[in-house]
Amino acid sequence: MEYKHVVNRIMLMIALFISIFLNLQAQSISDSSTILIQRNLRYADAPLEIGQDTSSDRLLDLYLPHTKPMQSLPILVFIHGGGFSGGDKGAKGNVALCKEIAAKGYAVVSINYYLYLKQNKIQGASAGANMKDGLPKDGKFHTGLETAVKMASADTELALQWIKNHAENYALDTNRLAISGGSAGAMTALYTTYRSKQKILPIRCVVNFWGGLASTDDIRASAPPLLTFHGEQDDLINVAYAYALHKKMKELNIQQSEIHILKNMGHAIYNYITKNEINTIDKFLTSNMPAYE
């Protein structure tokens, strides 16, 4: 009886080890094969004055679902933050967010772009100096910040051209394209969508993580819907920017637009978004970029 008991314990332990091994193996397969990432694809020539600074270079990372799609993939362009003086598409929070969105069936194009305020130190041009206390009364930022946004937007347009040129190679659906960003990247996404005159590709909707525009006057009734997340206690970009954007969307009767004010939260809360709001983002993108029958 004792021998049988020992054998049973050994068999149970073996079964347990096999179960753990298979579970870890499955988890590894899921984690590593869900998303394919092609890093540092060049979407335009490097700016001349940046030297070896890849954070200011015109490079993109392409996140694709591993499984071959039944039809062309909807696209989300993601623009990282950093106050136009720092940040990188390869930052841990950016990568985690892009992976989770791509896992929902999107091609995510995450870009680096020319960081004007990194290459040009200008007193009073930072986002914090211009935006922490609310919207500017004259509807304008410091000229240095305005220039930084415009230059980042120009690079975003170059990335849109790359997408247009390479859509067939990667099975990208250029009729289902959204644009997103965090902080400075959100400012760039908002400017590109609502203020620039780009005609490269139609932008169907925007996901705004704690960004803002100096003025909402340029937003028209035909504007794409907007999904905004903003920390209630953001001390860098005042939450008033989120409310101003949403107010304008409601005035224009763009009913698909949403606002999510995150109570007791501050700036750049990527971990919270990645863990809690991916389904909200997916629902918004799906409803505004429906697949064609």
Score class of each variant (00 low, 15 high):
M1S: 15
E2I: 08
K4Y: 14
K4N: 10
V6G: 03
M11A: 15
L12D: 10
F17I: 15
S19G: 06
S19W: 07
I20F: 12
F21N: 03
L22R: 00
S30R: 14
S33W: 11
S33R: 13
T34H: 12
I35K: 07
I37Y: 07
I37K: 13
L41V: 02
Y43V: 09
Y43A: 10
D45Y: 10
P47F: 06
L48W: 09
E49Y: 05
G51I: 08
D53P: 04
T54M: 11
S55A: 11
R58G: 01
Y63S: 06
L64Q: 07
T67S: 09
P69K: 06
P69M: 08
Q71K: 10
Q71F: 06
Q71M: 07
F78A: 02
F78D: 03
G82H: 07
G82A: 04
F84M: 12
S85C: 11
G86M: 04
D88A: 14
G90I: 12
G90H: 09
G90W: 02
A91I: 08
V95G: 05
C98H: 03
K99P: 00
E100W: 00
S110K: 09
Y114N: 07
Y116P: 03
N120D: 05
Q123E: 15
A125W: 05
S126N: 06
G128P: 02
G128W: 05
G134D: 11
D138F: 03
F141N: 10
H142N: 15
L158D: 12
W162A: 06
I163M: 05
A167F: 05
E168S: 09
E168Y: 01
N169L: 04
A171E: 06
L172S: 02
D173C: 01
D173G: 00
D173A: 04
R176G: 04
I179K: 02
I179R: 07
G181M: 01
M187A: 03
T188F: 11
L190G: 02
L190A: 01
Y191P: 09
K197A: 07
K199G: 08
L201K: 11
R204E: 04
C205K: 00
V206H: 04
G212N: 03
T216A: 09
T216Q: 11
D217Q: 14
P225G: 05
T228H: 03
H230K: 02
I237F: 00
N238Q: 06
A244T: 05
A244Q: 13
L245C: 01
K247A: 14
M249H: 09
K250G: 11
K250S: 12
S257I: 10
S257K: 01
E258Y: 03
E258A: 08
I259S: 10
I259C: 07
G266V: 02
H267R: 01
I269Y: 05
N271L: 00
N271S: 13
T274M: 00
K275L: 05
K275E: 06
K275D: 03
I281T: 00
T286N: 10
S287R: 05
M289G: 06
P290S: 01
